[in-house]
Design a protein around this nucleic acid. Structure first.
Length: 274
DNA sequence: CGGGCGGCCTGGAGGC
DNA sequence: TGCCTCCAGGCCGCCC
């Protein structure tokens, strides 16, 4: 579910609410997530620790604690991380919760359990196996057409798979891949070996624009996504291609089509995307 | 080796 | 009403 914009919106919403607060209790009701939750390590590194900053890398949310540890969470497909009063009843599929000194709790609900909760020493983050192979941040410095073109050398993958490849660039998932390619006017099955420099530039610009607009609009809420306060986003209204099979293209009046690439749905306009 | 596919899970939607 | 199949925003490991 959550792609870069959703995790960034979550980060922005949580940061002012939890900085300076201290983790007083950790509850793991169901540790069977993407990786089994290591309760002892989680508690050892987080209990009694104060939250110093809230960052994002790719689709991971990083909560830095004093004592040199970072609480790393990933929402998978259906995860939701919200802050509620500590006395709020446990909700269905609430698997992990961090009770704070302020009398609130940060809770993870994740029906499909593809999410991740792990504590890592902050200094080890970059070398950790979850982060070591990650590519460029599309909203950071050093992201542009020439960087994409460089990374496409000697490759022939369809461009849609390429922009979703976290070893190349991070944060773009199935929704924003379709949206960015639509905006750039590039056909999703086109091989990266057959894209001109000018089009790489357009694609990089489209990715940045799409992601930053989605952040400004609070992310895309199709079903599960909510920020730290439980509020959904609005970018689903702005979707021009994703989930619009059979509907009219806003640009050319043609019909949006759906195809399957690497087992995932891709939406595009045959008239606008070549 | 790059790239495609299945598997991990649950729930909702739609067909019959 | 129920039962079945398909599909879903991510990621990893296996296979060719």
């Amino acid at each position: 579910m959550p792609e870069l914009p959703e995790v960034e919106v979550l980060r922005q919403s949580l940061e002012p609410l939890i900085i300076g607060d201290t983790i007083a209790r950790v509850e793991v009701w169901n540790g069977s997530l993407r990786e089994p939750v290591d309760r002892r390590r989680l508690k050892r590194l987080t209990l009694g620790r104060t939250i110093r900053s809230v960052r994002r890398r790719a689709k991971y949310l990083l909560v830095d604690l004093d004592g040199g540890a970072t609480l790393v969470t990933h929402l998978g497909m259906s995860g939701r991380l919200t802050l509620v009063p500590a006395s709020t009843p446990r909700e269905p599929h609430e698997h992990v919760a961090f009770f704070l000194d302020s009398g609130r709790r940060l809770r993870l609900r994740d029906p499909r359990r593809f999410g991740l909760v792990i504590a890592i020493k902050t200094a080890d983050l970059d070398q950790d196996r979850h982060f070591r192979h990650l590519g460029i941040e599309p909203l950071g410095n050093g992201f542009g057409g020439s960087e994409l073109e460089d990374r496409a050398r000697h490759r022939r993958a369809p461009v849609k798979s390429f922009v979703m490849d976290a070893r190349v660039m991070v944060g773009v998932g199935n929704i924003y891949a379709s949206e960015a390619l639509y905006r750039a006017g590039i056909h999703p099955t086109r091989s990266v070996s057959r894209i001109s420099s000018a089009r790489w530039q357009r694609l990089a610009d489209s990715i940045r624009q799409t992601l930053s607009q989605a952040v400004r609009e609070g992310g895309t809420t199709l079903k599960d996504f909510a920020d730290g306060r439980g509020r959904g986003g609005l970018f689903q209204i702005s979707l021009a291609a994703y989930d619009r099979e059979g509907k009219t293209c806003h640009r050319c009046g043609g019909t949006i089509r759906r195809i399957v690439q690497s087992g995932r749905s891709t939406y595009y306009c045959p008239g606008c995307q070549r």
